Simulated scan of single mutants.
Amino acid sequence: MGDSFKARDISLKAQKKLLSKMSNKTIAKNFIDGNLASVLDNLYSLFKGYTGNKKEAEKVVKNIIKIVVKINILYRNDEFSAEDLKVANQLRNKFNTIVKTVISFFEVAFTFDKVFLTKNINDCRDLLKQLVGNHLTDKSLGRIDHVLDAFTDPAFMEEMFRPESPHRPILQKIIDDMSKAFDEGGI
């Protein structure tokens, strides 16, 4: 009766361990659709072009992939409670607001509002950490901070939405993919 062995717990641990051993391309094929893969490829190009640092750009994208895949594994294994699922719904709504806002800021010149966007991204960060806080390690929570810190960097944000920014062609591709995902119900 006091035996705490549970096959489901072992299975989840094995999946997380296997995830850490898989290549990013293998992970992407199993958990990320073509549209999201295109967004991630373009985010890599965007961060690499902005920072001039290939390793940092790779780290941001790898951390996004790890976060998305771990959340997907938790969801597929019914690890989220009813309360967690409510938070996940709030997170999805907040993320949709961010995506729509980014699209609007890009398409309508001089509408960029750094304070508004930063607040919404940080609200998203709080909801994401609330969702996964009881399920993932501090290292994974650090990955969330790393990614969202990159997106909320004031200089980065200003450069991305500056009408004459040299990064606009890559950002246009990201915007197109995000719009397509909205149209197809993928966000």
Rank of each mutant, 00 (worst) to 15 (best):
A150D: 09
F110S: 09
I103Q: 01
R168V: 07
V132R: 02
K17D: 15
R125W: 04
K16L: 15
E107I: 11
L131T: 01
D9M: 14
K59Q: 14
E79K: 08
E184I: 04
L136G: 05
N96Q: 13
G34N: 14
Y50H: 07
D145Y: 06
D3N: 14
I174F: 01
K55E: 09
F116T: 15
G34C: 15
T137V: 12
D126K: 05
E159L: 05
L148C: 02
T26M: 12
K62N: 06
A37K: 05
E58I: 03
K54H: 04
V68H: 02
A57I: 06
I187F: 04
D9Q: 14
K86W: 08
D3P: 06
T101R: 02
N72E: 13
K114Y: 15
T97F: 06
I32D: 13
K59W: 03
N134D: 12
G52H: 09
K13V: 08
H135E: 07
K25L: 14
L91P: 01
D145N: 09
H146E: 10
V61H: 00
I121M: 05
A150V: 09
H135M: 06
G52Y: 08
I144F: 03
D3M: 08
L85D: 15
S45W: 01
K48E: 03
I73E: 06
E83I: 14
I71V: 11
V108A: 09
F47L: 07
D84F: 00
K66C: 04
S11C: 15
I170D: 00
Q15I: 15
T152L: 04
K86S: 12
N77P: 06
K129M: 12
P154F: 05
A57C: 08
K25M: 12
V60P: 05
D113F: 05
H135S: 11
A109I: 05
